[in-house]
Amino acid sequence: MNGVDFLRRTMAIVWKDLLVEMRAKEMLLSVLVFAFMVLVVFSFAFNPVEHDLTDIFAGIMWVAFLFAGTLGLNRSFQSERQNGALQGLILAPVDRAAIFLGKFISNTIFMLAVELVLTPVFVILLNYRFGGSTPLLVAALVLGTVGFTAVGTFLAALASNTRASEVLLPVLLFPLLAPVIIGAVRATEAALAGKAAQAAEGFKLLGAFDVIFLALPFVLFEYMLES
């Protein structure tokens, strides 16, 4: 399979995932509602009117995104399990890496869409006075999300073969995600404070993990789908 065919098939999977989600709206709605609920709980717990949440704002954001995102990752393989569609994908003459990449891209698009909607809501509900750099914040969110969905897509596919996938996915995912979470929170904190040099340090850490977590599934996905 040449590069053009590989990309065509990858984009066919992305097109299909976006279309399925546009019709069902199951994943986006559940992720949005869940992240919003987490945010509401934090706003009650910390009382943003009386306390300055500057130091923990980035942490709260990522906790909400990661918990909600895990829910979304689980759902992303629901449509593949229905009617044995995953078998249909495996039977097709498609490079396994293209299947991984297609699912990874669609999950990243969904997560970024959720973050785009929720970040302004976070700022308002947590009474946060944003004085940082928007491009740096966007970069931190994108790099953190890429790391999360790269590992998450791979593990969600693995967990989808089990009966207790909803339980198994977070158990497998969060220990592996530790470096991404640390890097993402640090980079986001620095971006929110407008500290470009510190943010760059976080980006380096995130970038390195993103490359590793994207490269590994490319090699391992084939073996994971084999029986």
């Binding site: 065919d5 065509r8 098939r9 066919a12 999977i13 097109w15 299909k16 279309l19 399925v20 019709r23 069902a24 449509s79 229905q82 009617n83 044995g84 569609a85 078998q87 249909g88 994908l89 039977l91 097709a92 003459p93 498609v94």
Partner: peptide
């Protein structure tokens, strides 16, 4: 053709075939 249909419920008949058609080039 297996026991399962390998179809996506929320896609139309045409969209299902178009998707698999793209996978098979």
């Amino acid at each position: 053709v297996g026991h399962a249909t390998f179809l996506y419920d929320s896609l139309s008949a045409e969209e299902n075939l178009r998707f698999y058609g793209r996978l098979y080039g």
